[in-house]
Design a protein around this nucleic acid. Structure first.
Lengths: 229, 229
DNA sequence: TGATGTGAACCCATTCACAGCC
DNA sequence: GGCTGTGAATGGGTTCACATCA
């Protein structure tokens, strides 16, 4: 059927597709073949209407009165996310974080493989990290083109992140995942996502502080607990 | 406004405060003492109105016609986030990820210190990770109460994440950062944040796929920057 | 009957635009 | 004059509720 006109999926919904995807994979492993929006919602900790709306952006893949076929839906989400191919990625920075990422099996298991790790530090070059040898940052461009890399990961200290970003862009990479604790700027058209470990913790700190202040942290529905002295 | 009544900060704004905070710290290191919302916005890659609105939730700490005093604003954000104290955290899971997190200096530098790492694997116990010895998961409760821990990090494989969450909750921990690639469920009142490395990559994959399809990936406004004028 | 798919209502977040103050 | 702080307007995301169809 006319291959889906691929209307753009709203950012918020897009962010949940990988969650559904993983749940569906787990369900397959448990030999579950059908799932309802209600069940999916429960497993993903969201509400059922949201699940249905999110999935509706992909197309009409459910069966009214029945639910969704797990395998089929899995395939459709993977296809939409571009995960029916394995993306080669390069990691810039072979420190603790870079090494952890290179060794992180979850990456390899879910549609990505690390084809290069580079660093500027001579002492790191040649080390075996996650199955590949660390090479010099100057070789980035060469690695990227020879392996057709389009996704790069920045795992450098903050002060080298912009430099790393610049060299990734120069190497023709169009999508960057930034793990460095700083904002990088890139030319229009380059996609960036940022994960900041300390940043997330700092948000938890706020919640935890308000808890301790006796202000409700999340305030979900009813009262129930009275912290009074 | 004297002592701000600490109205609740909207989630979206809260998520940006740590970004501003880091920028402010950097500015202090560069001996910058004043900053305008325009400049902050530039550095944080957001727009100036958003910066002002976000900061207005903290109180009225700027000076009209001038801008914000860097040091003072830094202090106010830290105080709001609860970062004028250093939070003890425990890490559950001493694998690659747990070790990387324990060793990650960014955590220590920004308001947190790791007081315990636990694992169920006997072979890991006793290992020195990030300055602390790995102890058995059964000791979690004891560690948590003796060190007054209120923030826990889950760095286990997916299949042990729920179990880790349960034991953190049992140990009286009220805020959990979940790095395992699965959704955990916790009692109401417990705060959870989730970081999933592969999930973020999968979103990039989608963007990258649309790029390659000739569809614009991000399509930011029009061709001219909103510079000048 | 039972669960999907979706317009409509609602709610939160972003942006605008300007009054207010330095 | 310049920049903050904020109501008002806009836009996007979530939820509701029901028509629709296997």
């Amino acid at each position: 059927m006319s291959d889906t006109p691929r209307r753009r999926i709203p950012e918020a919904a897009l962010g949940r597709l990988p969650i559904y995807l993983r749940i569906l994979v787990d369900l397959t492993n448990d030999d579950v073949t059908q799932v309802s929006s209600e069940q999916l919602a429960e497993l993903a900790a969201v509400n059922a209407a949201k699940v249905r709306k999110d999935l509706s952006y992909l197309g009409t893949y459910g069966t009214r009165g029945v639910g969704y076929e797990v395998k089929f839906l899995t395939y459709q989400i993977q296809r939409e996310l571009g995960l029916n191919q394995s993306w080669p990625v390069v990691i810039v920075g072979a420190g603790n974080l870079g090494q952890a990422l290179a060794n992180f099996t979850g990456i390899a298991e879910r549609g990505f493989h690390v084809v290069g790790v580079v660093d500027k530090d001579e002492s790191k070059i040649g080390q075996l990290v996650g199955g590949v040898r660390v090479r010099h940052a100057d070789e980035l461009q060469q690695i990227a083109s020879s392996k057709a890399v389009s996704i790069g990961i920045i795992a450098t200290p903050a002060q080298h992140a912009q430099e790393a970003a610049d060299s990734l862009v120069r190497a023709g990479i169009g999508s960057i995942m930034n793990f460095a604790p700083t904002v990088i700027s890139v030319p229009r058209g380059v996609n960036v996502r940022k994960v900041d470990l300390a940043l997330e913790l700092q948000i938890l700190s706020y919640y935890e502080q308000t808890r301790n202040n006796g202000l409700r942290a999340v305030e979900t529905g009813d009262s129930s607990d009275s912290v009074s002295a």
